[in-house]
Nucleic acid binder design. Structure first.
Lengths: 146, 146
DNA sequence: CAGGATCCCGCTAGATACTG
DNA sequence: CAGTATCTAGCGGGATCCTG
């Protein structure tokens, strides 16, 4: 049993990576997760969803490919598949294939993905909450008088 | 004096925007701020700097163009200028020109920018803290056996 | 249903050169 | 110092067709 808590271990690991450095792997990771579709996929899978009695088991919600496709309005098949693969590879979500006819595929956040989802949802909510102020700022910036 | 708190007003505004919708302005805003350079610029301007016991003056730190350029290793002049302009337009930071010779320009977060910076820094720290786990996940994903 | 494969366009990031 | 201007290669990303 380790003497460090998980939070302490993360703080330890943090010291070894610095996203300000171009060569650091965390810079690439930051670039990967700094993505519109990543944010929305995580937000979709992290939400409790509209189904009332389905999420009693405590784990994060699972969604099918077509569900995600509908939820993320305007996403192309290519970007959805590509982003899901990338997130699966990084261990942020799991992809489960059920051999029905036709085949059923569902996606679900891992613990790691869930931890990021909490942060990403804050960003999404910030964007939604501060939209008015940003729009006002743009107007005054673009105004002739400055 | 309003009867709603700032938090309540944000919750109210949030109901009017939905980043899941393609046409919603908040979708574009989410796309803008979901950017590597945005994250790093906010993190740089939001940090208290190298001074150990500092931060007594309360306001966020201001940095000059060349300081930012050095801090964000690998950023091109174009991207730095472009991203700074975008953030200034959205009211996330201020740009101050001091007419010295040569000219001095400094950037500083606004209150709005500071509120986002707190969230963005969490993302950056998450990337740094979970880099090892992500790298391990990638290895096992790329491994021949699955 | 859940993609894989392919084509191709547009934007964008990066490099370079120049300037107030 | 803090940019602007210009050019270009590269790839992000959409459209389309096809498949198990």
């Amino acid at each position: 049993m380790p003497t460090m808590t998980a939070a302490q271990q993360r703080a330890q690991a943090k010291a070894d990576y610095d996203a300000f450095l171009a060569q650091c792997p965390s810079r690439q990771l930051l670039d990967r997760i700094s993505d519109k579709w990543v944010t929305l996929i995580l937000a979709a899978l992290g939400s409790d969803g509209p189904r009332p009695g389905a999420g009693c088991e405590g784990g994060p919600r699972s969604m099918r490919y077509s569900e995600l496709s509908r939820r993320l309005a305007g996403v192309s098949q290519k970007m959805l598949t590509q982003t899901l693969r990338s997130l699966e590879r990084d261990g942020l979500l799991t992809r489960t294939v059920t051999p029905t006819v036709p085949v059923t595929v569902s996606y679900q956040l891992t613990g790691l993905g869930l931890s990021l989802q909490h942060l990403m949802s804050s960003i999404k909510e910030w964007a939604e909450a501060n939209m008015d102020e940003v729009l006002a700022n743009r107007e005054s910036y673009d105004a002739p008088g400055g």
